[in-house]
Each structure stands twice: as structure tokens, then as C-alpha cells.
Design a protein around this nucleic acid. Sequence first.
DNA 1: TATGAATGAGATTTCATTCAT
DNA 2: CATGAATGAAATCTCATTCAT
Lengths: 207, 207, 207, 207
Amino acid sequence: MGEDKETKERLIESAKAEFTEKGYMKASLRKICADAGVTTGALYFFFTDKEDLFAAIVGKPLDELKNMLLGHFAMEKEMPLSEIYEHIDGGHDELSAALMHHLYANYDAFMLLLTKAQGTRFEGAVDQMVDMIEITYRALYENMARKIPNKQVNPYMLHWLSHMIIDAFIHLITHERDESRAVVIMSRIMNFLVGGWMDLVLEDKEY
Amino acid sequence: MGEDKETKERLIESAKAEFTEKGYMKASLRKICADAGVTTGALYFFFTDKEDLFAAIVGKPLDELKNMLLGHFAMEKEMPLSEIYEHIDGGHDELSAALMHHLYANYDAFMLLLTKAQGTRFEGAVDQMVDMIEITYRALYENMARKIPNKQVNPYMLHWLSHMIIDAFIHLITHERDESRAVVIMSRIMNFLVGGWMDLVLEDKEY
Amino acid sequence: MGEDKETKERLIESAKAEFTEKGYMKASLRKICADAGVTTGALYFFFTDKEDLFAAIVGKPLDELKNMLLGHFAMEKEMPLSEIYEHIDGGHDELSAALMHHLYANYDAFMLLLTKAQGTRFEGAVDQMVDMIEITYRALYENMARKIPNKQVNPYMLHWLSHMIIDAFIHLITHERDESRAVVIMSRIMNFLVGGWMDLVLEDKEY
Amino acid sequence: MGEDKETKERLIESAKAEFTEKGYMKASLRKICADAGVTTGALYFFFTDKEDLFAAIVGKPLDELKNMLLGHFAMEKEMPLSEIYEHIDGGHDELSAALMHHLYANYDAFMLLLTKAQGTRFEGAVDQMVDMIEITYRALYENMARKIPNKQVNPYMLHWLSHMIIDAFIHLITHERDESRAVVIMSRIMNFLVGGWMDLVLEDKEY
DNA sequence: TATGAATGAGATTTCATTCAT
DNA sequence: CATGAATGAAATCTCATTCAT
């Protein structure tokens, strides 16, 4: 079985295995091809180079993820502030459930992207996501700051919190294989984070 | 200037630069030697191999760090529980200030260790530190759990929180070059973390 | 001429020349490849490493030789003693002619194997052959010793004679390029050796 | 003890060990120096290069050996033929006992010379000795041949027998560490060889 | 005498990539 | 679509040797 799978498919499968085992840089194209039962030349019919092969695994899931984030934030932008407060408190579960579902639906890809991408153009993907989140939250918090006297956004904390959110996802996907359990965990984590949130990011101006 | 520095010193300097720029695996010994103004053979007079060169930069600072953690935890072990509560609340500042000082006193080394060690025997160093912290906190929280009815330790949260502490340090050192500012930030972060701490790690038994 | 020979063939040819000239250890793969008109990488398409290249030259002929010896000895095992006596006296010519033919049919390979293999896994090949012969002759002589009162096998002489036989072949192949002349010489040598044979290996028990 | 031995002596001792273990080519001067407790530079005060170090071990014993052979052969040259016959039969024991004594008095040196000299200018030493013996015996046998009608010297056999004698010594020194036992063995071997000697080397002219 | 440092040339090996067929 | 062969550049490492001090 599986032997009549298309070559491209087989290459991607063995690439996943090799990248997972050795990381991008130490992964050997020779081995990937051998495992897929073809010669190196064949690989170059389907992919332009090593990185393209990696991209074939992680590219689409990553783009979809970005679009989900973008879509969500676009939505928030158009909300009145009052709704946003609710959204922050309650809506996280909704978004994070959706994200989580996407993450776990593409488990292998995100595993590679988040932990084995060093040496590829994706090695900055985590930071990019952090930045995406950060930009959105900056808008949000600065909006708040303007309405509360003597408060300002602390940029470091903003960045760190953005990082923590992403790290929470990474930690989850690398430590909990079951999606439904992961959703429960993430819910509790978000509650925790949101608790101390505002005090940390919004500081008194004399700081 | 610097041309009369000793060769070993120059090698370490250019190694730092090269490792920082390219990461361990992509770093070229040729380039390191050329930048230091010696031939490749010279490197092997001072270091047994590439990894030994990396270790010459990060090894000692890492060991010292481990000893600091170990020393601290050993101390906690011998305290009565009442003191430990205080210690957790107040004492963190003390320890983290000391750690931070050590981190910043060896800024370059920890930068490499924490972000460029892939491919060396140090690539698991972060996880090791997480484990060290986790072990200590597990003892602490299980101790507490035994004294509060119907509570138990949630192992995932324990692990995640341990991770978060380490990540907080990593994030700090990679985003804030000034030590005194870093100490202030870390103090606030710790306050935040300790706040929600117990609710997260100690859960009701029916969970 | 010879430029359209296949690369692998050319590599083996220039390897033979280089190994012959310099010995295994001092032989340079660069030179072998240059002489064959390819880059060093090409070599590694056909051979896994330097030793594999050497093995590609000497491995098969050596295995065949071993099989010839094994086959012959297996035959002797099944003979009644009376026939063996004849066999020793007369049959040697038969075996040694066959061996000789094999040796000279693979002249280059055995030349390398017997005189240039230091540093390879074949460097013990001569001793192995000696051992093979010795084991067989030990059985034979011990068999005889049991039937002659007050005689025993002298292990040193047994070993030395085994060595002498192998050395006779080595000496021949390194000093006489013509096969038919070699066969004649070997025949006379064997006659000589067989003459004093028994007195030397079978000694009086009081020794 | 031994620590106040002179450096040169210690170098030679550790060189013996290293050459014996690894052979000349694979032997590491670094290791030899380290074992002797000095740095590489020191070695070059006493020896001009690696080969000179090897020569310092084997050179003198080899020269002495050559002189012994030369002296003996010179003596034979001046003898009347009648005495030589006796000499061949009986005198071998005398010479070979002397040779053997010399060999075993310089056991380590000859071990190296005979089995580990590949890569040095001594790698041909065995052949040289063979040649020395051969030259002498050629004179002897040609002398005889002239006096016996229809006989001539077979050059191949002459060479092979010369080889066999040397090989007998080599085999002995590599398999029997005790000198007195070695002398006994050699005596028996020589008897055996001399037995078939003449028939082999002196052949009918129609050959 | 001996050290410690450094050279410089070379070694084998690996690998992504290319391309004619 | 895929093969098999080959490239070419680079990699790490080893080692005998030299030399100023």
C-alpha cells in the first residue's frame, strides 16, 4: 500500500520524516529521495531546491494561519471599543479554538515550522507572528491608554506578552498531541494571561 | 587595534562574531581563522574541534549559571515551608537579580547559548534549565497540594510555567541590552507570573 | 584512447596505479580522480570511501581465492587417510595450479592485496590465509600423529610451514610475471617442501 | 623512576611504543612527545625529522647486522672450497646463533625494522638482506656449478631460498620471544632447508 | 635544551545541485 | 517523469615541521 502514491506525495512524506529527525540543515536530500524510492534528480522536477521542498510542507498551513489572524484582527478593527472589551475577554476562546484546530489539523507542518526551520526563510516565522499579534494589540492598548488618564503602553511588555501567547501555542503543540485536551489547556492559560494583562502593559506615565 | 591581542583571544572573538551571524552549523572555521589572522591549523592548537571552540565561549558561564540555580534550590530545600512562601514572593527578586547579573556579565555567551547552539551538545541547555526549575517547583507544589484538601498538581501547567520563566529570561536578554533596565522589567514580570501561579498549577481533583 | 571507458572503470584503473605506486595510505584520492579525469565528488558516487575503492579492486578476487581453498579443504576432509597421502604428494600440483591461475588472472589485485594493503581492513589477509591452511594441516598431522607411536605435532613448525607456503605464492607473484613459468616453479618448490615436511612437523614426544 | 632519564632516551622509548602500535606512517609525533613528557619542538633538537627518529631506533642494530653478514661472507670468500662445504653444513649454526643473539639483543629494533618500517627508507631493508645473502650464495653455487658437468644455477630458486632464510628469521622473531628456544628452532629449520638445497638451486642445463 | 605557538599543505568527505538522456 | 552521473565548492581536521624566545 502507498507504493502507488504519487512521487511528489512520497517525497513530501519522507521529507517530513527527515526534517523532523534531523532539522532542516542536517537533513539530507539524498536520504529523502532514497526513502521515497527515487533519485535526487526527480526531486528537482517537483521542487526548485531544498527550501522549496520545506516550503511545500509548511507554506500553505502558515499562510492560512496568517490569514486567520489577519481576518480576526480586521474584524476587531471595525468594532466599537465596548464590544472589543468583551471580545478580548470572551472571544479569545473562539479564536484560539479556531487557531488550535488549524494547528492540529496541520500538526506535522507546524511542528516543523516551529521547531525545525532554522536555516530556511521560515526561521523568522515565529517572530513574524509575534509581530502580527503585537501590532494589533498595540492599536488596542494605545486606544485604551488614550482614554485612561496618566496611562501609557509599555512597549517591552507588549512585545513580551505577544511572545508569550505564541510561545503558549508552540509549547502546547510540542507537548500535547491531542487537540481537545489542548483546547482546554489553552483556555485556562488565556484566562491566566488576561488576568494580569492590563496592569502590565498599561503603566503609569511617570515610569 | 587589537592586533596584539593573543591569538586564542582573537579566535574566540571572531568565533563569537561568526557564530552570532550564521549560527553554529553554518559558521565557517576558515572564516573564523581568517578573521583572527591565523591559519586553520592554529585553531586546533587551542581547541580540539569546532564544538570545543563553541564550548570555550559558552561552557563556563553555563556551568556557573547551573551552580547558581542548584545552590538556590538546595537552600530552599532546607527551609521550613512558611519561609518558603515568603521566599517565593520576595526572594525571587534576589535570585533573579543575581541570575540577571550573571547573564548580562556574560551577554555574548548566553546570546549564543540560547539562540545559536543548534548542532552542538548545548542545544538542549534551555530544556535542561527548564527541567531544573520544574523539579524544584514540583517538590514545592506537591508539598502544598498535600496540605490543601482536594487539590493536585497539574503537570502540564507546571511544565509550562517553568518554560515561561526561562523564556522570560531569554526574551529579556535578546531584547534589552541594558542590565539595570532588565532587572526592573524582570521584577514586574515575576510579579505578574506569581500572581496567577497557584490557581493554574494547583487544580481541583475532579479535573 | 581509453577516454571513452566508463568513469568507474577509469577510477579503478588510476586507483590501481596510485595504490601500486604509493601504497594505500599515501595514495591520494585527489590524484586518482584527477588521473581519471573527474572531480573528487564523482568518486563518492561509485564508492563509499577510500577503503571501498580499494576493496572494489581486491575484494572479489580475494573472496574467490578463499572459496577455492575452502572447497579444497572440504574435499580433503571427506577422504580416507590413504587417499590423502596421495593427495598431499600428487594433488598439490592440481590445487596450486588452480590457485596460480586465479592469482595470475587477477594479477594486479593480488599484487595490491599482498604488498600494498597496509592501512586497510585487508592488511591481515595474508595471516588469514596462513591460518586457513594451518587449520587444515593441523587436522591432517594430528591425525597422522595419532597413528604413529611417540610422535606429536610441533605447533611452531606447523605454523611456519603454513607461512612458507603462502610466502612461496607471494614471492612467485611478485617475482615472476609469466603464469606458465610460475606453475613450473611452484611445482618444484612444493616437491622440495613436501620432502622434509613430515620430519619437521612430526617430532618425537620427548622433545 | 625513569623520570630523570634523559629526554632523548624517553623519546626513543615512547617512539618504540608508538611505532610498534601504529606503524611508522600512522604514528603521531605529537603523541610520542606527549608520552615522553616534552613538546614537539624538543624532538627536533635531537632528531632531524620523523624518519631520523625511526632510524635512531633501528639504524645501529641494522648496520651491525649487515657487518656481521659481510664479515662472515668475506671470510667464506677466502676459504678453499673444501672448507666451505663443511662450513655450509656445520657453520650455519655458528653464524645463525650469532645472528640470532644480535636479533634478540635488539629485539624491539628488529621488530620495528622488519614489520613496521613501511613508509621509511628502511622499508627495503629486508630485500637488501635477501640480496646480500643471495650474492654470496650465488658466488658459492656458481662455483660449484662450474665443477659439476651439466649443472647450472637456477636464479629464481636462489633468490627464493635467500628469501626463505630471511623470512625464517622474521617469522622467528615475530613468534618466539625467547632466544634460547629460538636458537633450537632455527637449527632445525636450517637443517631442513639445507637438505633440499642443492637439488633446487643446481638444475640440469637443459632446463 | 626546551617551549609554545603557528604554519601550510594536504587529507577525506559531504552535499545541494545540474543536466544529458 | 525520472535516472544516473558528475560537478564544484566547501567543510572539518591532521600533521610534520619551524622558529622566536
